[in-house]
Amino acid sequence: MGEGAATMAAGITFGVTLAIFGFMGWLALPLLEGETLSTLFTSVWNPQGGHFGIRPMIWGTLAVALPATLIAFPVSVGFACVATHLAPSWARRPLKGIAGFMTGIPTVVYGFSAVFTLVPLIRRMAGQGSGFSILGAAMVLALLISPTMILILINAFETTPQIWLREFEAMGATPEETVWYLIFPVTTPAMVSAFLLGLGRATGDTLIALMLAGNAVLTPTSPLEPARTLTAHIALVMAADFESPEFRSIFACGILLYLIIFGLTLMVRYLTRRPCP
């Protein structure tokens, strides 16, 4: 009986994973008929005029998520090095604790705080616009995804075999040399997966972009301009009438996001699978 229950639960998990995709596909299906589909990948979003292009949102997602990950990655690598090898040993545990604690901080709190601190700051520094911009969103998003990456990196850095570490110590290597010549080369796959998972989190985050990026439907050209991401787009287009093509088109965004995450997951799995003995 126990085994039956466990198998059933596994079946539910499997089913839910497929169902998320299936439901979105089912609701996006009417898009295939009619003219909506042809306008879907154009850059004009004008629901009244029958244009449902989501290309600006795809660019918006890229423009916010990629810089955020590019900022967060070196920061995370540096932090993980400090927390595992470079800091004096009394400081390592508190640093790891802070990284763990940061994973638990609500996204909306970061967003709320940034709306009243970072956004006015950017407005004043830029001297133009509202301050709701790609720059602000990417910076806060970098802060948000760093702890996830840091924890993966710390975990990888710490599973480096003790024998090698002792051998390096015996050779007279400084901590910096150990990090550069031993830790980085042996943990390269883990570092790449940390990057990819961070990118996944940045792509999937809704609140930061929704609260800070300004949400204008524009193909972004400068970091001080506003942008709308796919996730924010889904949150914004909540038409009450769920038969409208406008509403259908957000399921296309959902499917796109799902596929991006699935692709990233596959890549991470490929990188972290155990090497054949």
């Binding site: 994973t17 497929l18 998320i20 439901f23 996001l257 995450i261 990233l264 799995r269």
Partner: peptide
């Protein structure tokens, strides 16, 4: 292997997409 892939994917799916799933379920 299939199920761990499912769990990994599910762990990464953005919460807004999961919300969209919940919403479609509500429509159903």
């Amino acid at each position: 292997r299939t199920l761990t892939l499912c769990v990994d994917t599910l762990a990464g799916v953005p919460s807004i997409v999961v919300g969209l799933f919940g919403f479609s379920f509500a429509i159903l």
